[in-house]
Design a binder for these strands. Structure first.
Lengths: 178, 178
DNA sequence: GAACTTTATGCAAATAGTTGCACAATGATC
DNA sequence: GATCATTGTGCAACTATTTGCATAAAGTTC
């Protein structure tokens, strides 16, 4: 149960509406934790009950209130407590690897691998741009900024590894010559 | 919904009981798809209803029957159909990356990173042993064996990448000094 | 001004996955 | 002979996540 904690991390950077959080989960944080807006709203409601977040609502006539969520002291304490726990092993779930292992349709695997490679390249490019723009002097980073940088570096490593893997697959498929 | 398909892949290699599958999900296939025995039994029942698998039961007095599951022609067709689909993007969920990004407790992060690094090394060692033992001549592999080999290579790449990332984190934490 | 996208919130239903428990024989260790 | 691990199956309750739908104003494009 860590969507709670991913939201706490997001809110500890800056307060946001549910909608806003959903967009941030589509972008940077979303690389490590995916969530839809429906799920985010549900979890935010529970977090509010627990006192981990507070809301300031803006009335909008005819529509539901717009609510901006902020992390509370209790929320910060929970974030700290959770950070102290050893982190659970990743639950890996790779459709692609299962498919590869099954090897039921080599031609489909080749296509899929090429598609994946292109996606990795695209994501990598975006990451490297972020890196250049936001962290031009990594040796001077401290605290949460250092954390965000290191997370980004992990993303970059993952994408590079993904590309290398795709290349190996494509190479072996060619050598095996169908 | 791909546990079904991971099970089909496992059964296409060889027939198995639910218990047996659970163990195989703990080992090789489990690197790409984790599942508990309870979930596996539940899904197997559904797959049986769909006709994707067939069972041969052995009576055991006083106990529930032991059932060996095998993939059927329908199951093979479904596996092939699914293989033809472009694979969905991974749902990444990394507790660790979220924690790193939050950076609420640097000392806990260092410990966690060291623990993770050790786990990566352990898994990598196991993979490399499998590689040496089962695939001494990778250039001659074909079909499902080639698929399993390439999946293993992906696992190896992932572990190596994970170790490099841990090393970078530990290095930066030291440079940032505390 | 009509049509489309973005901002913004949320319910309902279904599926997926986890956690806790239970039963029962067989084989291995003390 | 007692105790413990392994083989084996499964239910029940709960939590997490996905998918489909609904509403509505404000801003943008044709």
């Amino acid at each position: 149960m860590a969507l709670e904690h991913a939201i706490l991390v997001a809110l500890s950077e800056r307060s946001a509406t549910g909608y806003d959080l959903a967009r941030r989960f589509d972008a940077s944080i979303g690389h490590f934790w995916r969530a839809t807006h429906q799920q985010i709203y549900k979890v935010l409601a529970r977090m509010d009950e627990n006192g981990w977040v507070s809301t300031s609502a803006t009335k909008r006539d005819g529509r539901l209130d717009k609510k901006t969520y902020s992390i509370t002291a209790t929320g910060k304490a929970e974030l700290k407590r959770w950070s102290g726990e050893p982190s659970a092993k990743e639950v890996t779930r790779s459709d692609f690897a299962v498919k590869l292992r099954g090897f039921a349709d080599p031609e489909a695997i080749r296509e899929d691998t090429e598609k994946r490679r292109a996606e990795h390249v695209e994501t990598l490019t975006a990451y490297e741009e972020s890196e250049k723009r936001f962290y031009p002097r990594p040796e001077s980073l401290r605290g949460q900024e250092l954390g965000a940088f290191l997370a980004l570096r992990g993303g970059i490593a993952l994408e590079k590894g993904g590309i290398a893997w795709c290349d190996e697959i494509l190479g072996r498929l060619n050598d095996a010559g169908h």
